[in-house]
């Protein structure tokens, strides 16, 4: 049985006027120990609500959440408090105590657990080392950059040695470089401590960089889940494709809409996966069907360290030959989208 198993979890909120909205509409997820499990979805999809159900900050209306064989939806407040020692959590806005310095912020959970001063000191220094902030021990949060604050928050979340770390948009308030360094830190912690990480995000680059598994959530439902590369290379779902496309640099959707289709040929967006992520295929197809394939824009991105290529091309020639070329491309399991709007 999986390490964490979420089964048919539902959750509604009552608003002030008395009407209810169902935010989670039956969520099923299976997470293994050591996973870096990404949950990606647009704003309002229910990501935060879902992750807060995992440590009982939010109570699911129905369904079960099993962690290490025990169903946490049946726990009382006291039992939840001890469960939370096993589950650390970090947030988009870091949530550090302004009135306490870095050292005391990290020491907070240890003090609460009544560790001796010596043990607290030893553990805090250890953690400062892990997150690379030894020199900031006496600084206050207001004196730190966003990335440093998140490092403090990570140290604090790991203080009592949890085996699971929940990340609620942990990098969404950070610039791209800082995001990378925090993701690298999470990835390091995952390997060194065998920490299971569940992270929610609306940023595809976060998933792309560190997640081995991913679930796509839309409007309170899991649209699909699985290995990150498989999901993004094979998905037929529009939302998944949109997330994938968001990592490729290229012309904007509007630019492409205005592209003069008929004059310059059919506009295609080709997505190659794995070994096929190269353009020699294009050349050979153009040759064998005597079509004129013109590459407008190309880039390669790596998901789980495997390449996925993106090419915007126009294809021109005898209509029949064009159709044949497209068919051939599809046979080679190249995914084709028609940004010009033509989908036949």
């Amino acid at each position: 049985m999986s390490y964490i198993r979420i089964k048919d979890v539902k959750k509604s909120f009552k608003n002030k006027k008395g009407s209810t909205t169902e935010v989670l509409k039956g969520i099923d997820l299976e997470i293994e120990q050591g996973d870096i499990y990404g949950i990606i979805g647009y704003s309002g999809a229910g990501k935060s609500t879902l992750i807060r159900c995992i440590n009982g900050l939010e109570k699911a209306d129905s369904g079960s959440i099993t962690i290490e064989e025990s169903d946490i939806t049946t726990l009382n407040e006291k039992q939840l408090m001890s469960l939370r020692l096993k589950i650390g959590m970090i947030f988009q806005h870091f949530n550090l105590l302004r009135s306490k310095n870095v050292y005391d912020n990290i020491a907070l959970p240890l003090k609460y657990q009544k560790y001796s001063a010596d043990r607290i000191d030893k553990r805090v220094n250890e953690l400062l080392e892990t997150v690379g902030l030894t020199d900031k021990k006496r600084s206050y949060p207001s004196q730190l950059s966003g990335g440093q604050k998140q490092r403090v928050a990570i140290a604090r979340a790991l203080a009592v040695k949890p085996s699971i770390l929940l990340c609620d948009e942990a990098t969404s308030a950070l610039d791209p470089q800082t995001t990378e360094s925090i993701l690298d830190l999470l990835s390091k912690l995952n390997k060194e401590l065998n920490l299971t990480i569940i992270l929610i995000t609306h940023q595809m680059n976060v998933i792309q960089r560190i997640c081995n598994k991913v679930a796509v959530i839309d409007d309170g439902r899991i649209v699909e889940q699985g290995n990150t590369f498989d999901i993004f290379s094979k998905s037929e779902k529009e939302i998944t494709r949109a997330f994938l496309n968001s990592i490729f640099k290229g012309p904007s959707r509007d630019d492409l809409k205005n592209y003069p289709d008929h004059e310059n040929g059919r506009l295609l967006h080709l997505i190659f996966t794995g070994e096929k992520a190269n353009d020699s295929l294009i050349t050979s197809i153009a040759k064998s069907f005597d079509t004129d394939i013109n590459i407008l824009f190309g880039s390669i991105e790596y998901v789980e360290n495997k390449p996925i290529g993106s090419l915007y091309v126009t294809i021109k020639g005898d209509p029949k030959a064009v159709e044949e070329s497209i068919k051939k491309l599809k046979e080679q399991s190249v995914r084709i989208e028609y940004p010009g709007g033509d989908t036949n």
Binding site: R84, M89, N95, R98, Y112, R156, V160
Partner: peptide, 18 residues
């Protein structure tokens, strides 16, 4: 006081009283 700070404390397993 930022409600996020209180939420973080709850997530650490700290009691309401504390």
């Amino acid at each position: 006081v930022d409600s996020g700070v209180i939420e973080a404390a709850r997530a650490m397993g700290i009691s309401k009283r504390y």
